[in-house]
Design a protein around this nucleic acid. Sequence first.
DNA 1: CGTAATTGTTCGATAAACGAACATCAAGCC
DNA 2: GGCTTGATGTTCGTTTATCGAACAATTACG
Lengths: 255, 255
Amino acid sequence: MRAMAQKLETVESFSRGLAVLRSFGGVRSLTITDVSDRTGLTRAAARRFLYTLCGEGLARTDGKNFELTAGVLELGHAYLSGMSELETVRDILQDLTLEIGESASAATLDGHDIVYVARSPARHRIMTVGLAVGSRLPAHAASMGQALLARMHHNELEAFLQTSPLRALTPQTLTTRAALKERLALVRARGYALVSEELEIGLRSIAVSIEGRPRNATLAINLSAQSARISEAEMVETYLPRLMHAARRVQLSGG
Amino acid sequence: MRAMAQKLETVESFSRGLAVLRSFGGVRSLTITDVSDRTGLTRAAARRFLYTLCGEGLARTDGKNFELTAGVLELGHAYLSGMSELETVRDILQDLTLEIGESASAATLDGHDIVYVARSPARHRIMTVGLAVGSRLPAHAASMGQALLARMHHNELEAFLQTSPLRALTPQTLTTRAALKERLALVRARGYALVSEELEIGLRSIAVSIEGRPRNATLAINLSAQSARISEAEMVETYLPRLMHAARRVQLSGG
DNA sequence: CGTAATTGTTCGATAAACGAACATCAAGCC
DNA sequence: GGCTTGATGTTCGTTTATCGAACAATTACG
């Protein structure tokens, strides 16, 4: 798609503006010069885009510092509100959490990452970084990522592997194409992805993909737990049946 | 802020692009002509912006229909990730839900709406429309909205009332400035906002705002229940103490 | 099949966006 | 306090990015 953009007319100022919006990631407040540094735009350009965001109600300024407003969430909401099945997915995930006492999530693939689209957290946090809708994690190291990659057509998967860094997050992360391909073959054979300590030390999760969805709207759901609390065998034995039942419910709901 | 934009240099193409992005709200898939109709842009302009979104990985197309991708969530995430206190807020809301068995939420004001920034849903859904982070509701009819409006400075509140439609969502909604002002005075005097069936028939909720936050970063939390399950008096007696305790925890956490 | 309407696209013209230069502010030193 | 230097914010003539009218392609209907 990025290659495609080379041949078709686009609006460069829109891209630049989006870069300005993204430059707020992780920080609350930025000056014109901060944004200029983060985006590579001139201060004059950064200023114009920031004032545009303010004019749209997406940012505010005290004259020196700029902050995004909650109105920005409306942009993400444009995507979520187009997914009519998402309410049902949330309810089903919540049932899972009540039943099992562990966090349940749904994610889709975007580039080399999974993106969380729904979450039902358990009371006890198990990852060092809190996850929310919109959070991204490297697909190769995440159970939902592997479940979705396993379903990709061969050419698509090759393209993914050619361009994905396969970064090591822990000593357990699969960082070679051969290792990941072997794992994905196993995922395909078993019908689920089980990931232990590849994403984070102490984290184990199991995922399945939702069948019957269009190729460009794939979705996976998972359950995560601390690896000290449950063995792989036990996760398969006690979590997997319920997870597959939930997946079936999502599928039957038109999800 | 919108008036301010008249005097300052902005990038009109960025605004137009954002309008294209927003035009996907509520639908999954749009053609060039659909977007043109929804935004008032020419088909040629709509096409350029759509292809820009595709080039940024925020949309994809089969050559005819365009859909947003999950990458759009990254834009909303730019706002959420700048709120360092949000993880703690989520945890605290979840404690509330576990304790009481009802949905707990946090929201901020944006224009005439509240915008949900965190949610801990109860198992039983109580509103006809599911809420998620990024969901917006009219502030005047929502308990968190009233809690936040009650804390506004006089001039600010007057400006809000001058421009807000005060739309009736139910026969109980407060739709006159006088009625709303009277309610807000009561909210101020009591220290909490109690809203019954003003937002939706069958829905009762109680909210408090978080003290000690900067004027432009106000936050409120609430508990919602079916009005048939709990009376106003009982909500005040059993929910309010816990809600205020949670608010205190949020405040002390730097939230 | 032929016609009309609708939808998607091209490219010369225009005006929107650009950034170099200027103005203002802040910090440090005497 | 005054002066100098460096950093930050802004202005406006110039440039080029974006524009939409007109054309091409596709679809729908009789």
